[in-house]
Write a protein that binds this DNA or RNA. Structure first.
Lengths: 221, 221
DNA sequence: AGTATCTAATACTTCTCAGTATCTCATACT
DNA sequence: AGTATGAGATACTGAGAAGTATTAGATACT
């Protein structure tokens, strides 16, 4: 016998309701983790943010760590894609490097809580190898995406990668994260275009000034 | 009347004893913070590690945060110095970059807990601006030390810095930290000499292979 | 010598939070 | 309709930790 579930607008099936609860919890968790940090975020606060209670959390996730992983898994999918998706080989390398560099720095600045959370997670990973192992695939995937885009677009830009794509991706990613940290620690000390400038140096494209600029001057501090 | 304090070998004056206690606490704190992380390190554990009790901590420091800051202040002094002090302009740039790069990567690997602690502190700084402000001077000083060494040694190496020294220092530091993080997340994914290679690219010194190496091959994975 | 002072130990308070046990009530099934 | 199921609420437990009050005992001062 085939059962036909009658659907009224806000009359959800159990499965749907649960999925919705789960989604609300994950959204709330993402916000609270970003706001408070990994350790300081309490499950009670997350539940409250979602308009639910801790019971809902433990009905949907095995533990706090489990919830974190679920949140990460979802968040991790979109991150890199946003930036690489915008690569446009009809512009010059110079333009494109500046755009991507600026976009990267801007996004980490405006979503600072996410950067902070990522730092904490990295530290946590360093102390909990099994946690790290559960993230490694996603991390490699992100790198591969960067590598693929760079490899694919290099000919269009008329340049050659000075390193194998994967290594280039690692360097790029590392530099971006490192500079974000520098900027976090000393916002005024890091020029906005430093990322792009450094990248172009590696590509062998020397700066706009043919000769050396003085170490101090009218340039932005 | 002048008081002469009699000194027997292990008979310390009050002041000395207190200083010694403080030093023992800071040493223990450094170890425990590194081992457990910022939040997970308990004052009881630190006290125990020092062979003392929490009373000793609160007699010497106002709060946990105060203790952290004291530890950092001391630890921060030696770090950078170790690496820059070894710069030797009698070697070639290539050699020297490789040495410094390898030394940096090796030191962050073998003192991994310190890297993790630094990450947590950075995240903490991002959420507590007044804490960050108390670190900013030290951070700038470290950068200046790197910048000075690079600026001073560049002529000896017969090269020119492609960027103002301070910016060069920022990029170098950022890249080092970023690569350390990459290596932490995926130890096998990061070649040991990638740091040096990237640096040399920025200096405009192209790799040992005149032509491009394939993206995969007999190289370690 | 006798007293004051201050370091660090002891013991306690207060609080936060992850995780659990239990219960309720809406949905699903028969 | 009546019963079974399970999502989520409520209330609790237990661990652990920061910080405090008090005290003991050694050192310094007179």
């Amino acid at each position: 016998m085939i059962t036909q579930t009658v659907r009224v607008a806000d009359r959800l099936t159990r499965e749907e309701k649960k999925a919705q609860t789960r989604a609300r919890l994950m959204e709330a968790a993402a916000a609270v983790f970003a706001r408070r940090g990994l350790a300081a975020a309490s499950l009670d606060e997350i539940a409250e943010e979602a308009g639910l209670t801790k019971g809902a959390i433990y009905s949907n996730f095995a533990s706090k760590e489990d919830l974190v992983l679920a949140v990460l898994d979802e968040a991790g999918r979109e991150r890199i894609h946003d930036i690489t998706a915008d690569v446009d080989a009809s512009r010059t390398v110079d333009e494109e490097a500046r755009r991507a560099g600026a976009q990267f720095m801007a996004s980490t600045q405006e979503e600072l809580p996410l950067l902070l959370l990522a730092l904490e997670l990295t530290a946590y990973s360093g102390r909990n190898p099994e946690f790290r192992d559960r993230q490694i695939d996603r991390h490699r995937e992100s790198l591969r995406e960067i590598a693929d885009v760079m490899e694919a677009s290099a000919p269009d830009f008329g340049i050659e990668l000075p390193l194998p794509p994967r290594q280039m991706a690692i360097v790029l990613n590392a530099l971006g994260i490192g500079l974000s940290i520098e900027k976090l620690l000393d916002p005024e000390g890091v020029p906005d275009d430093l990322f792009a400038t450094a990248i172009m140096l590696m590509y062998g494209i020397r700066g706009r000034e043919p000769d050396r600029q003085p170490s101090s001057g009218t340039a932005p501090s």
